[in-house]
Amino acid sequence: MQKLTNLLMNPILVKEFRGRMRSWKSILILVLYLLIIAGMTLAFIYMQGGNSRYMNPGRSREIFMVLCVLQLGLIGLVTPGLTAGVVSGERERQTLNILLTTQLSPTKIILSKLTSALAFIGLLVTTTLPLYALILLYGGVGPGQMLAVFGYYLIAVLLFGSIGIFCSSWFKRTGVSTVIAYGITVFILGGTGAAALMLQEWLRYVNRMVTTPVEFTEFFYVAGLNPVAQMLSMFSPDILLPVMNTAHVGAEGFPLPAWLYYLLVYVPLIALLLFLSVRLLSPVKRPLFTRKARKIQETQEVSSK
């Protein structure tokens, strides 16, 4: 309990929450976020209904998919903006050096900043819950799928957040850090999809003379990197595994479960980015490898004698 209290009373979190909730920008982001996501979802519902004056419940699955993609896109839009200035901003405000001389370790600083961004995105996503409730009301989507989607959101926020924090630790200026963080986010959200489509066309070209059934497993490994394709594969698995000369395949045709592949790639990447951010933030870097560390220690012992 004491540990939990300490964690919740972490001074950086308290300061960040306080600062964020006092800023009109946060309210503006919240309003814009809701306007965009609700406006687009309701517009899609209206278009799906055509001229009829009722909602077609059979279409709720499609609406859910649109809402999920929209939400993921907006998370990709907001997260780098929230995180790409957390370290460089402290540096520019000339508060970083002071912070580093306190008892707060670089690890605690980085993780607190990430948690703060995560909490704000959590607030944004939570405010959109009524839209999900609207869809769940008409069926077509199970609570398990809903939870899985939120799992994908969590990984996406952690991924884009750690990219933002890494850029912020690496680049001294927030402007540069923000541009690079958005560049990488756009690549992950769009670039991996475009690369997968190009690969698909190339595979179709290479296999154009083949008449037997073909599954493009190579495609799975590229498309599986795309968060949007990953999330939609829950509803239609052939997004990640296109085939030729055969009927539609299910998720059982994947070389390994899609979510597992996603986690295997991105969780270590998130951990690596956070580790590098902590290392970049540490003013005095200890050698990573023991042999080098031992050599330095020996040199210091000799010089102290």
């Binding site: 009373m9 972490n10 001074p11 950086i12 308290v14 300061k15 306080r18 600062g19 006092r22 800023s23 912070l99 306190t102 008892q103 707060l104």
Partner: peptide, 15 residues
């Protein structure tokens, strides 16, 4: 965006 007391409270927490 902090008051003088909150500013010192933040660093007291940091220590």
């Amino acid at each position: 965006n902090l008051t003088a007391v909150e500013y010192l409270d933040f660093y007291a927490g940091a220590y």
